[in-house]
Amino acid sequence: MEQQLHELRALASRAENRRTETGIPRVAMVQGEIPDHQLAAVYDPMINLILTGSKTMTVGERTLRYDPATYFVMSVDLPAVGAVHPSDTDEPYLAVSLTLEPTVVANFLAALPKSAGGTLYSPGFSIATVTPDLLDAWVRMLRLMDRPDEIAALAPAYEREILFRVLQGPLGWMLRDIATPDTSLSRIGVAIQWIRENFAKPLRVEALAELAALSVSTFHRHFKAVTALSPLQYQKHVRLLHARMMLIAGAGNATSVAFEVGYESPNQFSREYARFFGKPPTRDAKTMLQRLR
Score class of each variant (00 low, 15 high):
residue 2 E to I: 06
residue 14 R to S: 07
residue 22 T to P: 05
residue 23 G to N: 05
residue 25 P to Q: 06
residue 26 R to I: 00
residue 28 A to G: 01
residue 33 E to Y: 01
residue 34 I to A: 14
residue 35 P to D: 11
residue 40 A to K: 08
residue 41 A to K: 05
residue 42 V to A: 03
residue 50 I to V: 15
residue 52 T to V: 03
residue 56 T to H: 10
residue 59 V to K: 07
residue 61 E to W: 12
residue 63 T to D: 02
residue 70 T to E: 14
residue 70 T to Y: 09
residue 79 P to Q: 09
residue 80 A to Y: 08
residue 82 G to R: 14
residue 87 S to H: 10
residue 90 D to H: 11
residue 91 E to R: 11
residue 92 P to Q: 09
residue 95 A to N: 01
residue 95 A to T: 03
residue 96 V to R: 05
residue 105 V to R: 06
residue 107 N to C: 04
residue 121 Y to I: 06
residue 128 A to L: 05
residue 134 L to N: 00
residue 134 L to G: 00
residue 141 M to F: 02
residue 143 R to Y: 07
residue 150 E to A: 15
residue 153 A to M: 11
residue 155 A to L: 05
residue 157 A to M: 10
residue 159 E to H: 07
residue 160 R to F: 04
residue 164 F to R: 11
residue 166 V to W: 01
residue 175 L to K: 07
residue 177 D to I: 12
residue 178 I to L: 15
residue 187 R to V: 02
residue 188 I to K: 02
residue 188 I to H: 04
residue 192 I to F: 02
residue 192 I to W: 03
residue 197 E to S: 13
residue 203 L to D: 08
residue 207 A to Y: 01
residue 211 L to W: 02
residue 218 T to W: 08
residue 223 F to M: 08
residue 225 A to W: 07
residue 230 S to F: 06
residue 237 H to G: 00
residue 237 H to E: 11
residue 248 I to A: 08
residue 257 V to E: 05
residue 259 F to N: 01
residue 259 F to A: 06
residue 260 E to D: 14
residue 262 G to M: 03
residue 266 P to R: 02
residue 270 S to C: 14
residue 273 Y to Q: 10
residue 273 Y to K: 11
residue 275 R to S: 10
residue 277 F to K: 04
residue 284 D to Y: 13
residue 286 K to R: 15
residue 288 M to S: 06
residue 291 R to T: 06
